[in-house]
């Protein structure tokens, strides 16, 4: 039941990256090389590469191992073998709290006993600019929620709060695990455009796990289909 992601450069739509620049820029970006993770007894295999500032969408059926890839990169699952490099640095050698990664989980993105604003202030090395947070909240229609407690918010509102913090944090590599799952159609588009915009402006490299083609189109430079190896 092993899954495989073909090297990104092979699947990538031709013409987006010239072959010459690929080798050079990839060493600056993210390289996942023959990464093997065993989850509940099933081995999962990953191979992919991202150029700096590239946005990649990953799609695939439930249970195929999309979240596991993100959790392994962020340091919450342990790889059996293989390597992962960011800017030439061995990611797997770093503890989770030292990796240059900001991740949005499917759930538990907010400390429920802290106010929304207190949650938004976490994860920065010094006090974040409150105006930027305010602007982002206005763009995502949650400006009036900042003084509340997370328990008073709907699932979609919490997701957007988490999304704001994940993108505004200084870490260069962003991992989003189904960030828009609980949003309605309009809000979803709005959030996707905002994400693409901020990632671009702030030089983020981004991996997005999603079930929706539209999310991928709005944000990603390219899309990977993650498949169980048996299907191939």
């Amino acid at each position: 039941m092993a899954d495989t992601i073909k090297p990104a450069s092979i699947i990538a739509p031709s013409g987006t990256i010239s072959h010459k620049t690929t080798v050079h820029t990839l060493s600056q970006g993210l390289i996942v090389d023959q990464l093997k993770v065993v989850l509940d007894g099933y081995p999962l295999h990953y191979d992919l590469a991202l150029a700096p500032y590239e946005c990649l969408a990953i799609q695939g059926k439930s249970g195929v191992g999309k979240s596991t890839l993100l959790h392994t990169l962020a340091g919450f699952e342990t790889a059996k073998s293989g390597q992962a490099f960011w800017q030439g640095q061995d990611l797997l050698a770093l503890p989770a709290h030292k990796r240059p990664i900001s991740m949005l989980f499917q759930e538990h993105n907010l400390f429920e006993h802290l106010s929304v604003l207190a949650n938004l202030r976490l994860g920065f090395q010094s006090q974040p600019d409150i105006r930027l947070i305010q602007q982002a909240a206005e763009a995502l229609d949650i400006a009036d929620q900042l003084s509340k407690q997370p328990t008073e918010l709907s699932g979609g509102q919490r997701q957007r709060i988490g999304l704001i913090r994940t993108l505004l944090r200084p870490e260069p590599l962003i991992l989003l695990d189904e960030p828009f799952a609980e949003l309605d159609q309009d809000t979803r588009r709005k959030a996707a455009r905002w994400t693409a915009d901020v990632a671009r402006k702030n030089n983020k490299t981004l991996i997005l796990v999603t079930h929706q083609d539209e999310d991928a189109e709005l944000i990603a430079d390219r899309t990977l289909q993650l498949k169980a190896s048996a299907e191939q």
């Binding site: 987006t16 990256i17 620049t21 820029t25 150029a51 700096p52 500032y53 590239e54 946005c55 920065f124 010094s126 974040p128 600019d129 930027l132 505004l168 200084p170 901020v198 671009r200 402006k201 702030n202 030089n203 430079d221």
Partner: peptide, 16 residues
Amino acid sequence: MRKIANNPSLNLSQKL
């Protein structure tokens, strides 16, 4: 490949 935004004023960590 997407163009890289070079404008330093838009770099969030600096702006913050």
